[in-house]
Design a protein around this nucleic acid. Structure first.
Length: 287
DNA sequence: CTCAGCTCCTGCGGGC
DNA sequence: TGCCCGCAGGAGCTGA
């Protein structure tokens, strides 16, 4: 479920609680999520202190003072919930979070001071791995990732090289984490709409100026989503201590049948299925 | 190498 | 109201 902006929002929300904190115990309520947990995971994490939270694409990175880093993926339905203990040792109120079922609390970080950070994931498409911090790029989940869409690595020349010669539709190319790492179904739809590029266009057929527009669109849509996430984060923390999703004004995603929001465009947002997944786009202004 | 299709799992909303 | 079906924001694997 979460794409790069949501993971970044989770990172920012967790950092005040986890940066520098000592993990008294890592509690595992099962032996696996999408993959088996690494050997002796609880023992290798318990008692360690967290350095500074990081992120790579859709992965949350939790470096420890042991020289190893936790690599956490939220999958489709994963969430991180902060439960702060008060002076009396009770948990913070989180009953507003009606859909959270305790049987999906798979991993619990028990921190010094009584705070608990809970990794809840109903569909269990998430993952948790532990890898040597100085060889993090070799971790199986990170080794094949492409460039970060925020920052300097994404520029028109780089994207042109990635797309050159590919006949796959643009929708699939942007979803491919080996090219650009961090986009998911929503932001691919949104970025292509902003850049006015059809999701069915063969990737290698894009013109230079279209690639330039796409770079801008990707950066803008991700940055705006992160900003929106940051603004809702404060509410989340004060309300119920949970972190995770936020409302974002999508222009085309899940808006089938609505008027195209592009200024001056008379089109209607359409839905099509590409490699089994919904694409939302406008036939009029996306070419 | 590239690419399409299948698969893991649970929850929820729409339609009847 | 209740039941069934389809669909969901990810991504690794298989096989052509």
């Amino acid at each position: 479920m979460p794409e790069l902006p949501e993971v970044e929002t989770v990172r920012r929300g967790l950092a005040p609680h986890l940066d520098g904190a000592r993990i008294e115990a890592l509690e595992l309520n099962r032996a696996d999520l999408r993959f088996p947990f690494p050997p002796d995971l609880a023992r290798r994490v318990s008692g360690r202190r967290v350095l500074t939270l990081g992120r790579r694409a859709k992965y949350l990175l939790i470096p420890l003072d042991s020289g190893e880093t936790l690599i956490l993926h939220l999958g489709m339905s994963g969430r991180m919930i902060v439960e702060r203990g008060d002076e009396a040792g009770t948990m913070a109120d989180f009953h507003h979070d009606v859909t959270r079922l305790p049987q999906h609390d798979h991993v619990i970080f028990r921190l010094e001071g009584g705070t608990r950070v809970v990794f809840n994931d109903p569909r269990r498409f998430g993952s948790l791995d532990l890898w040597s911090s100085d060889r993090l790029d070799d971790a199986p989940s990170l080794a094949t990732l492409g460039i970060e869409p925020l920052g300097n690595a994404l520029h028109p020349e780089a994207l042109a090289a990635l797309l050159a010669g590919r006949r796959t539709p643009m929708k699939a190319a942007l979803l491919d984490q080996r090219l650009i790492a961090g986009l998911g179904n929503i932001y691919v739809c949104e970025a292509l709409h902003r850049a006015r590029i059809s999701p069915t266009r063969p990737a290698g057929a894009l013109k230079r100026r279209e690639i330039g527009a796409l770079v801008v669109a990707i950066r803008d849509v991700l940055a705006e989503a992160i900003d929106a996430g940051g603004s809702t984060l404060r509410d989340f923390r004060h309300e119920d201590g949970s972190l995770g999703y936020f409302q974002h004004a999508f222009r085309v995603y899940d808006r089938e049948g609505e008027p195209c929001p592009t200024p001056g465009c008379r089109g209607i947002v359409r839905r099509l299925v590409q490699s089994g997944r919904s694409t939302f786009h406008c036939l009029e202004c996306q070419r």
